[in-house]
Each structure stands twice: as structure tokens, then as C-alpha cells.
């Protein structure tokens, strides 16, 4: 017994060292980002509180650029609204005689406005912290956009804060297509340039040219169909000959994220329910 105690004391440093290394490795190799506990991430109360305080100061820094971008978007939306109003007017006139009512457009998506309080672009796996949480109706796997394009997807939700997986994170793959073309591929960041990403697995028959816009495909439930993501900047050489890989210039400027919109989809829970029901039924059949 005495020998054992002596042994433990003599080599205590190695035991302590091994213990800490093992704990670190457990964190390090836990690859499922959706299972992290909220207190171990930047969405925790203390950590997010500190980021919130510093955000109160730094949020003023980029107001000019943000304002300009908003003005531009506003102008674009106004144009779109006017043209749509004109179109609607035409239809109303045309169908007036047929007593056909014009449908109220279905609006399955709702936006929740949030501020980015912490953000990184220099790491290989980037995350973003925002100041809205489960109290405001956020749930994991909701999509997040800003005035220019796609930002990321909600990942860990705290009471008042949440952590997002940034688009600049190889763990996040986004289903996208070339605008005006139904061929779709999968957008993923390659860890190099925060302005560039890769569109992989685009079928060989897809027609595209440099400068075309890439939009979301709407196949994932996080983002509606047709949100702008980036612009084709060129193509990459691939090993697989059946697919193209394109280099995409992202529209979102991740170095200046300020206000973002979380997309809360009324439909997504319904679609998900249908999907799970189907798979359950299939499983029962089998």
C-alpha cells in the first residue's frame, strides 16, 4: 500500500498531465457540432454576455457601409415591388371578368432580426455568436442570412444567445444551383480565403459561365429557394470527371457582419414531420 502511494506521488505529474490531455482530446475529437453543451460554447450566459458588452462598443464601427448596403437593397426591393404591383394590376384586370380572385401569396418564412456579437474568419472552422436565443423562437438548424447573402446555420441555442456554424466552416454544406438552371451542387468552404468557396458535385451537363449567380436550391429546409449566395469566379480541376467543381466568390462579407436575419420557417416543422412519419412507416413495413 505504501509503495503504491509512493508510486502515485512520484509520478503524479504524469497522471495529471495524461488526465488533462485526455479531457482535451475528448473535446477535440467530438465531431458532432450539434451536441455541444451550451455552456461549453460562446452562446453560454457568461461568454455571450462579455461579447455582448464589447459588441455595444464595436457595433458602431461599420455603420456607414451597412447603411449603404441597406439603401441599395431597399432600392432594389422597391423596384421589384413596383414591377410586381404593375404585374398584379395587369392580372387583376385580365381576370376581372372571370371573377377569379388573386391568391394571397403564401408566406411560409418569417425573419427574426439579430446582431452578431462575435465572429471569426481566420480559423479553419469558424463560428458566429448572435444575441437571440430560444426565448425569441430560435431552434437549431435554422438558416441565417444578411442583406447580401447566406451567413450560416443555427447550431447551439442558449436562452438569450445562439451560436451559428458559419458558411466559412467545412462542416457546413449548402445545396445550391446556378440561377436559371436546375442543376444543383453542394457549396462548401475550403478553409483558405474568407471570400471564396467551392461549389462541388455540379453535374457535367450543367451550363454555366463565369459571372453567373449561384442561388440556394431550396432542397434543404433551412433556406428558401433562390437566395443569392455568390458569383462564379472560375472552375477548378477535379479528379472526378462526372462533376464540375466551381470557385465561387461569396456575396456575404464575413469580415463586416453586423445585423443578420434568422429564417424561421413555419413549413419546415411540417415537412420534417411528414418526412419522419414516412421513414417510420417505411421502417415498419420493412
Amino acid at each position: 500500500m505504501r509503495n503504491l502511494v509512493d508510486f502515485l506521488i512520484k509520478y503524479s505529474t504524469w497522471f495529471v498531465f495524461t488526465f488533462y490531455v485526455i479531457i482535451s482530446c475528448i473535446f477535440l475529437f467530438d465531431k458532432n457540432p450539434y451536441q455541444h453543451h451550451v455552456y461549453m460554447t460562446s452562446a453560454g450566459k457568461l461568454t455571450a454576455g462579455i461579447y455582448d458588452m464589447s459588441h455595444n462598443v464595436t457595433s458602431y464601427f461599420n455603420l456607414r457601409e451597412t447603411n449603404e448596403e441597406l439603401q441599395l437593397q431597399n432600392a432594389r426591393l422597391e423596384e421589384e415591388l413596383l414591377s410586381m404591383k404593375a404585374e398584379l394590376q395587369q392580372y387583376q384586370e385580365r381576370y376581372h371578368a372571370d371573377t377569379m380572385t388573386v391568391f394571397e401569396p403564401v408566406r411560409p418564412y418569417k425573419f427574426i432580426i439579430a446582431s452578431v456579437i462575435n465572429n471569426s474568419i481566420s480559423r479553419p472552422y469558424n463560428h458566429i455568436t448572435i444575441n437571440k436565443g430560444s426565448k425569441d423562437g430560435l431552434r437549431p438548424e435554422m438558416g441565417v442570412i444578411d442583406q447580401n447573402g447566406i451567413v450560416g446555420v443555427v447550431n447551439v441555442v442558449g436562452e438569450n444567445y445562439s451560436r451559428l456554424i458559419s458558411l466559412l466552416n467545412p462542416n457546413f454544406r449548402l445545396s445550391c444551383k446556378v440561377k436559371g438552371n436546375e442543376a444543383f451542387g453542394s457549396l462548401v468552404w475550403d478553409g483558405k480565403d474568407p471570400q471564396m468557396a467551392l461549389l462541388e458535385e455540379l453535374p457535367r451537363h450543367a451550363v454555366y459561365k463565369t459571372g453567373d449567380t449561384i442561388v440556394t436550391s431550396g432542397y434543404s429546409l433551412m433556406f428558401p429557394d433562390g437566395l443569392p449566395v455568390g458569383i462564379i469566379a472560375g472552375s477548378e480541376k477535379t479528379i472526378d470527371d462526372n462533376f464540375y467543381t466551381l470557385r465561387i466568390k461569396l456575396l456575404t462579407d464575413f469580415s463586416r457582419l453586423s445585423t443578420v436575419r434568422v429564417i424561421s420557417s413555419e413549413m419546415s416543422s411540417e415537412i420534417k414531420e411528414v418526412e419522419t412519419n414516412n421513414t417510420e412507416k417505411n421502417n415498419q413495413k420493412n
Binding site: I23, C25, L28, D30, H36, S42, T47, Y51, S120
Partner: peptide, 15 residues
């Protein structure tokens, strides 16, 4: 690590 969302990277390097 908790602050910068780098799971265990700094903890291992610091140890």
C-alpha cells in the same frame, strides 16, 4: 476555448 469555439484545441496546446 469556450470563448472562441475551438473545442479543446487551446486546452491541449496549453497543457
Amino acid at each position: 476555448d469556450v470563448f472562441s469555439d475551438t473545442q479543446g484545441m487551446n486546452a491541449l496546446a496549453c497543457t
